[in-house]
Amino acid sequence: MCGIIGVIDRHRELMDGSTIRNALAVMDERGSGEGSGYVAYGIYPDYADLFAFHLFYDTLGQPKTQVEELLENWGMIEHDEEIPTCEQPGMRKVHIPWRYFFRPNRKLMLHSSTPDDDIVTRVVMEINTTIPGALVFSSGKNLGVFKASGWPREVADFYRIQDYEGYIWLAHNRYPTNTSGWWGGAHPFNLLNWSVVHNGEITSYGTNKRYIESFGYRCSMFTDTEVVAYLMDLLVRQHHLPLNLAVRALAPPFWDEIDRMDGHEQELNRAIRLIYGSAMMNGPFAIIVALEDSIVGFSDRIKLRPLVAGTHEDRLYISSEEAAIRTMEPAIQDIFMPEAGEPVIGRVIA
């Protein structure tokens, strides 16, 4: 099942984490208390131009030494500290959450047009696949993921998310099937500035994984959700597709609809399906993806998972449940159900 919710304020006005905590808890029926998580954008203004790495350490010995050595090889750690937590009755500190503010040394990736991002991607993949006892679960700028096994309120209070203020928030209430109780298995999933919350199961995972791996990404998290982040990164950052067309590649119109389109529109949609057929995601899903300046929510092509959206003043809300949106904004009037596969996009203004 799983419940998801996201919000963006188009003037980058900051919201603390307390309301989304309550909204996520409204959807406890959709979860099982084995995984909850939040991501907020705009929370590290003092380090806004550095990559904020959030890691889980099993111990502070060997894994931490190895990670820091790797980071120092690829750039500079400007600041690091344990992420403040507050143990809850139902939640023990199974891993030690730690954060680094990291500046990559772009001279080490001269051949690349996006050296910083490539270094960070590489370091994240290397830590997650080769250093036992360490897991990077957040690696963007001025943003951070907070997740663990537990109910939404417990996890929120564990990280004291009411102390963080962001202009974009995503949150996820998990009902796990693949990896129960594993903190890394909770959502949001993040790479660079991409964050994803996902309700569903991707039946095309094998196809998507093989496709994305041929572009050098490595699927290492044992969850089908990470592939969404990598696909968005490939389509938007590397192939420069606008957000709405990237979503169209992942949840494209049916051929019947394309055949009925006008010349130019038909040509474009046919090209998207031909070129990005292996990126198409099948199976039931509702997904919200966030980037530093936008969020986009969309469902699978036949809407096998719920997705509802609403706007109020400067804010766009997207969620599995209308009740969750109303919990965040009781005064909201404008609530709507997006069509299957149709993206709902919210952007900040400048």
């Binding site: 995972y205 196809t207 099948n282 199976g283």
Partner: peptide, 16 residues
């Protein structure tokens, strides 16, 4: 039955 409605998502899907 495999929850796939387009053949692109079957192609190379060795996980299934």
């Amino acid at each position: 039955a495999a929850g796939i409605n387009s053949i692109e998502s079957l192609r190379g899907n060795r996980d299934r």
